[in-house]
Design a protein around this nucleic acid. Structure first.
Lengths: 192, 192
DNA sequence: TCCTCCTATGCAACTAGTTGCATATACAAG
DNA sequence: CTTGTATATGCAACTAGTTGCATAGGAGGA
């Protein structure tokens, strides 16, 4: 189980409430680990009981009070332990691939719209990633700039960028592959 | 839930026992949908009760008797319904990305071996895919052959090949990205 | 003969994740 | 003054997936 660890990493990057975490899981972290707010609140409660996180009540005037969580020593140790443990490669749950193979026993042409819809979602996500990259990490390396920018490397920033580049590579791969799938589907059902 | 549908597709491609399905989920289908034998037996039992699959006892002399499952009309309809329903894009559970971001709060150099291990697994899987492609789908298009091979297109075969090409593209992308991650890790901890 | 491996099926208990609902504050629009 | 939206937290019930264990026949080797 790595939701615990994903939350710990996120809280180390920046402490926050369950609600704020839930919103982060709709963007940045959520792109490689999904979680709903119900799940997050439940895990926070358990981690609090285990002493992995500290809570601090934050009264707010303009909105409901919140609880700000931050990582405690025990949580840092638990994360470190997990980081040093080997993990299995991701377990895949790729519905679309099942559908594509299933289309052989149904109408392949009917799948075209679904594949196009998925491709659009991946294109949107790619655009979103690229905008985020331009905003947070400046223009892509090698584009402009004086020789050797003197910015000192920040490990957190560098690693976040590396993960984001992974997301970008994934979306590009998916868009290309879905082009391939669409070509295959059209070849099988030339009409339409 | 799509394990039901993944099983239905697999049984449509070829009827088989729970044990055989479990082994298929360690190879072909398993590359985009994981399942253990316990889960498969349980789902088969439920689908049998719902009339989605038919069972046929197959006595065997040299090994324990087995139950061969095949898709019933109701199962075909259920699959068709699912194929026509829009689905959400895959929910991602990418432990390694969490680890990479987490490495900023631990020792980045310690992650190098883990990343290399994952890269090797992806290289192995890529080699396995390419071998399977060469075996089942012949040499890659455009390599040789007389103009216009007269083989009639088989939808099932074509779509299986398209999914396999997706797996190949995925593994290549991962290998390249992990190269990128390794370069980043080395940049952050040059000495080791 | 015993031991291990492969085939073959399954239960029980647990953990993780999803879905649906409930509550409450504050602000803005109508 | 009601309605809608955003913030903020949570319970309960359900579904899906994992882990550990159990059983059993036949093949092949020590």
């Amino acid at each position: 189980m790595a939701l615990d660890h994903a939350i710990l990493v996120s809280l180390l990057e920046k402490p926050g409430s369950g609600y704020e975490l839930a919103r982060r899981f709709e963007r940045s972290i959520g792109y490689f680990w999904t979680a709903t707010h119900q799940q997050i609140y439940r895990v926070l409660k358990r981690m609090e009981a285990d002493g992995w996180v500290d809570v601090r009540g934050v009264p707010q005037r303009t909105r409901p009070d919140k609880k700000e969580y931050s990582v405690a020593a025990a949580g840092r140790e638990a994360l470190s332990r997990w980081l040093h443990d080997p993990i299995e490669p991701e377990s895949v749950r790729h519905d679309l691939a099942v559908k594509i193979r299933g289309a052989a026993f149904d109408d392949p042409a009917a799948l075209v719209r679904e594949v196009e819809r998925h491709q659009r979602m991946h294109q949107d996500r790619l655009a979103h990633y690229l905008a985020g990259e331009a905003r947070d990490f400046g223009p892509p390396a090698g584009a402009t700039g004086a020789p050797g920018s003197p910015v000192p490397p920040d490990p957190g920033r560098e690693l976040q960028h590396a993960v984001l580049r992974g997301g970008i590579a994934y979306e590009r791969m998916m868009i290309d592959w879905l082009d391939d799938v669409l070509a295959t589907l059209h070849r099988l059902a030339p009409g339409r």
